[in-house]
Simulated scan of single mutants.
Amino acid sequence: MHIVALHNLKGGVGKTAAAVNLADQAARGGLPTLLWDLDPQAAATWCLNARPGLGRAPKKLFRRNAPIGKERQRTRWPYLDLLPADESLRHLDALIEKGKDGGRLLHGLLEPFSESYGLLLLDCPPSFSRLAEAVVRAADRVLCPLIPAPLSLNAWRQMEGHFDRRRYGRDKLRAFLTMVDRRRRLHRDWVAARPTSLRRCYETWIPYSTEVEKMSLRREPLMAFAPRSPASVAYARLWSELAREL
C-alpha cells in the first residue's frame, strides 16, 4: 500500500480538492483507495457526501485500544472509502508524545489497511505540527499544491528547509501548481517555466475553475458531474504522473 499525503503550510490552496479528486481518479482505475480526512474542518468528508465524526476517540485509536478499521465509511463510488474527519482530531498533536517516533506510530496504525487497499491518501491540516511530522515520516510521497505567487514559493522553501532539518527525506516532497489563472501573467510565466528554486514539481498544473468550487455544492468529485472540464482532465493527468512514480 502506498501512502500519499496532501500538505501545505497555508490553507485555501486547493489541497482538499486535490485529495478528493486524486482519490477518485485512483478508485476509478480500479485501485482500492482509502482517504483519511485529518483536517478537523472536514472539507474532504463533506465533498464525499459523508458524515463527519468518529465512533471512538482518537486517543483510543492511537493507543490501539480500538480497531481503526471500524471507522471506515463506504462512499457512493466503487473502490473509494473514507476515514471521516472529527473535531477531536485537532488534539492529535497531544497524542503524539514529544520525542516519540510519530511516523512509526502512525505507520503501525495504518499498516492493517494494506490488506484491503493499494492507496491511502491523507488530507492534512495546514501547519507544522507533530501530526504533520508523523504523516511525513509515514508517507511515500508528500504533495504540496502551490498557487503561482511569491508567498507560495516562500512556503515551499520553508517546507524544504523543515524537511531537511528534521531529516525526513526531502525526496518525498513534490509540488504541483494549482488554481492557475492564465489571465494573469505571473501564472502564465510559471506554467511556461517553473522558478529555478521550485524543484521536484510535476508538469501537470490544475487550472482555476468554478467547477472545483461546485464540489462543495454537489458533494462529489469532479468526474461525477463535470468529467470533461479542464480541471477534471488535469487531475487525471496529475494522478497519472503520481502513479508512474509510485
Rank of each mutant, 00 (worst) to 15 (best):
K98G: 09
L38N: 01
L80C: 13
P58N: 05
G55W: 05
R56W: 10
R56K: 07
E97F: 13
S114R: 12
L54D: 06
K100A: 12
E111D: 10
D101S: 07
L89S: 01
D39I: 00
F62C: 03
D101Q: 07
G69K: 12
A43W: 00
K100Y: 10
E111P: 02
L48M: 08
D37N: 08
L89T: 01
R64A: 15
K70V: 07
R72A: 09
R28N: 04
K70W: 14
L105S: 07
P78V: 14
G69A: 14
A42L: 05
N49K: 13
G99D: 05
R104E: 14
A66R: 02
P78E: 14
D101A: 14
T33V: 12
R104N: 07
A50I: 06
G99I: 00
P84C: 15
S116P: 03
P40A: 05
L83M: 15
K98P: 06
S116H: 11
K98T: 12
D37T: 09
G99N: 03
L110T: 03
K70C: 07
L110V: 08
R56L: 10
H91M: 11
F62V: 04
N65H: 13
A57E: 14
A50H: 05
P32F: 07
E71F: 04
A42G: 13
P78W: 08
W46D: 15
K60M: 12
W77F: 15
R28C: 06
G102L: 01
T45Q: 08
G30V: 02
Q73P: 06
P112K: 02
R72D: 06
P32I: 06
T75Y: 02
R104C: 08
I68A: 08
Q25W: 10
G103K: 01
E87G: 15
L89V: 05
A94R: 14
R104V: 04
Q73M: 14
L31N: 09
T33M: 06
D81Q: 12
G30N: 05
R76K: 13
R90A: 14
T45N: 06
